[in-house]
Amino acid sequence: MTTNPTLVLGGTGKTGRRVAHRLADLDVPVRLGSRAGTPPFDWTDPAGWDPVLAGVGAVYLTYQPDLAAPGGAEVVAAFARRAAAHDVRRIVLLSGRGEPEAEHAEAAVRAAGVPCTVLRASWFQQNFSESHLVDPVRAGVVALPVGDVPEPFVDADDIADVAVAALSGDGHAGQLYELTGPRALTFAEAVAGIAAATGRDVRFTTVTTEAYAARLAAEGVPNAVAGLLTYLFTEVLDGRNAHVADGVEQVLGRPARDFAGYAAATAVTGVWKP
């Protein structure tokens, strides 16, 4: 097994920390790419990229805030070129389904010349427990500018399992895997599943884009982040991603984790208690 470390960007994030833990369990040396890492990594400081890439064999590449954000494709392309200059042997890129801007970023990373595997993931189940939706769930009302369009929410643990397989195994270079859960749910159905798992009254309601944006502003969410969230809810959730894909089973040989199992396992942790 290689002694070169695998660089995990976003190493403290939803998927990155899961990937890092799994690699460590396989005795793969891991270098965390974060502001608190050693050496530190910051997407806004290209001068610091070379020390982070020095001696690295593979990279799990996640971009914050999102590949669809303005300028995202250019930034990750520049990083991938630096990775190529450091003789990195493989990149596993986390991307999003149905985002044209993310697809531009995928092409830009591939063009850098490092063998690349693309993971196009649907909405994370963990967005309800580890991200911007956890507080609304705790409050009992999840209000979003989305209607009855179904989404096959994917478990972040499945993403991590696929990423580790692509980082550590053969036959994944040049592949594109679409990662979803095994069935599509509307946001109302997903919230109802959380309510059933917790035994609490947690409701979903549809709001206008204007009302959602105003709430984000009142909560102090930065304009760039608010704009990205609004874009994802109003543009990407238009039905284009409603179909289920088999990327998880294709790579791992098992079905993807279902939302009901995620909700039940998360409920017992107490994260959704008011």
Rank of each mutant, 00 (worst) to 15 (best):
R17K: 14
R22I: 10
L23F: 10
A24G: 09
L26K: 14
D27R: 14
V28D: 08
R31D: 10
T38Y: 09
T38W: 10
P39E: 13
D42K: 09
D42R: 14
P46D: 10
V52L: 01
Q64T: 15
L67P: 02
G71I: 08
G71A: 13
E74N: 05
A80D: 09
A84Q: 15
A85M: 02
H86S: 12
V88R: 11
V88G: 10
L94V: 12
A107G: 06
V109F: 07
G113R: 01
V114R: 00
C116N: 06
V118L: 04
R120V: 05
R120P: 04
S122I: 01
F124V: 00
D135N: 12
V142G: 04
A143I: 07
A143H: 07
D155F: 14
D155N: 14
A156D: 11
D158F: 05
V162P: 06
A163Y: 12
L167C: 12
S168M: 07
G171M: 10
G171W: 08
Y177G: 13
E178C: 13
L185K: 07
A192H: 11
A197F: 04
G199R: 04
D201A: 14
V202S: 02
F204M: 02
T206L: 07
R215K: 10
L216K: 01
A218R: 05
V225P: 00
L229I: 03
Y231G: 00
Y231E: 02
L237A: 04
N241I: 14
A242W: 01
A242I: 03
A256G: 06
R257M: 03
D258Y: 00
D258F: 01
F259L: 04
A264P: 00
G270E: 11
V271R: 14
W272V: 03
